[in-house]
C-alpha cells in the first residue's frame, strides 16, 4: 500500500486565496499539512476557521466558494496529498 510508506507521514496540500480573501487574510498561498486521513473540505475549513475571528468569518461565509484541483468543490469532498485548494469570494463590481 502506497500510503503506508513511512516517509510519507504528513500529506500536504497547497491552498490559494483569491481577491479580497487574500487581502483580508493577509495570505495568498500556503502549504498545509493534513494531520490525518480523509480530511474533507469541511474539515479543512474548520481548521482554518480556528485561526481567528477574521478566518472564521471569511472561510465560513456562505458566499465563499472552494475549488479543488481547479474544479468547484462541495464541503464533503475528501482531500488528497498534493491537492490544490482554492478559496475565492464572489466579486461584485463592474
Amino acid at each position: 500500500m502506497n500510503s503506508d510508506n513511512a516517509s510519507e507521514d504528513n500529506a500536504s496540500i497547497n491552498i490559494l486565496y483569491f481577491a479580497s480573501l487574500a487581502e483580508s487574510l493577509g495570505c495568498e498561498c500556503e502549504s498545509f499539512n493534513l494531520a490525518c486521513e480523509k480530511v474533507s473540505v469541511a474539515d479543512l475549513k474548520q481548521q482554518l476557521a480556528a485561526r481567528g475571528e477574521q478566518w472564521q468569518r471569511l472561510i465560513n461565509a456562505p458566499s465563499t466558494r472552494c475549488a479543488v484541483n481547479q474544479s468547484l468543490a462541495e464541503d464533503e469532498q475528501v482531500l488528497a496529498s498534493n491537492d490544490e485548494v482554492a478559496f475565492f469570494p464572489p466579486v461584485t463590481g463592474g
Binding site: 483569491f18 481577491a19 479580497s20 487581502e23 475565492f88 464572489p90 466579486v91 461584485t92 463590481g93 463592474g94
Partner: peptide, 10 residues
C-alpha cells in the same frame, strides 16, 4: 458574466 474588485476579476 464578469465582475471586478480592486485588482481582481472573474
Amino acid at each position: 458574466y464578469a465582475s471586478i474588485h480592486q485588482y481582481s476579476g472573474q
